[in-house]
Nucleic acid binder design. Structure first.
Lengths: 139, 139
DNA sequence: ATACTACATTCACAATTTGGAATAAGGTCA
DNA sequence: TGACCTTATTCCAAATTGTGAATGTAGTAT
């Protein structure tokens, strides 16, 4: 039996709320796999460091991510794989909608990246390593 | 290739945003299966009708639910089964956390319903029918 | 028509969230 | 030590959200 009490509802809602910001969702998406350093997130998302840090704080307080100091840098990781289930479901539904809307409104994807997309080079420990060993992509 | 563009991120975030309120999450949870009438939601959640209606509007505008008039009453349904995947994942993670917190903090479930739980009787078409027969769809 | 029921919308205000700027805090290295 | 790097936090104004109260709209019944 699936009895839902108030605590569970509130907890679930607060998880959703932490995820419900484009920057935070993007952060979670970037943390797939082995996680990412703050400077990497700052570089990839193209946002001020303070802002990234603020969003990371929200994610931390919601318990969605954990921070591990590594010298001067900090590695953030997703705290529980189930978090990614939620993210994946959200992205899947979003994708489905965008597609069906595209068919309905003739709004096909042929645009060039409206805004700046990837801020390219980042000097975080991981990126430096990948850069040298020629490994690209995530996973 | 799972390239995530900005539109998809924003769409996903806005879905999460719509879900991220306890009342709305509870509404979605009540809509499982065949949906529910507004008066049923009002009765079950124990909140003012206007407030339920306001939250339903948010869910409608986010495209998570659809409304079908049926005489004087309005039946709300989940617009896409994938919405429930998200809800289920949120509830699962919430449950997992509450459990692990309970073990860690000795906060076992020994409370009586902190707030009012179910407002019991509701006169919506479905409840009335179930009340006097037992199990049947709408007519 | 009136009265009643179910639901939706608007308004006003409090509470919360957001993000930039500045600054603090923690760590490394010459 | 001080210069420098990475990340965290505080302050604050603007924007957004949540809610009750009142009101509007649509359908039913008499």
């Amino acid at each position: 039996m699936t009895s839902i009490d108030n605590r569970q509802i509130r907890e679930a809602a607060s998880i959703a709320r932490a995820i419900s910001h484009p920057v935070r969702l993007q952060i979670l998406n970037e943390l797939r796999g082995e996680g990412a350093y703050v400077m990497h997130l700052t570089a990839v998302l193209g946002r001020p460091q303070a802002n990234i840090s603020q969003h990371l704080m929200v994610l931390r307080e919601a318990g969605l991510v954990t921070a591990i100091r590594d010298g001067m840098t900090v590695l953030y990781q997703i705290s529980d794989p189930q978090v990614l289930n939620i993210v994946d479901d959200l992205l899947a539904l979003a994708q489905k909608r965008i597609e069906s809307r595209g068919l309905a409104a003739g709004e096909m994807e042929s645009k060039q990246g409206g805004r700046r997309r990837r801020r390219g080079k980042c000097r975080c420990p991981r990126c430096s390593q990948e850069d040298r060993s020629g490994r690209h992509g995530r996973g």
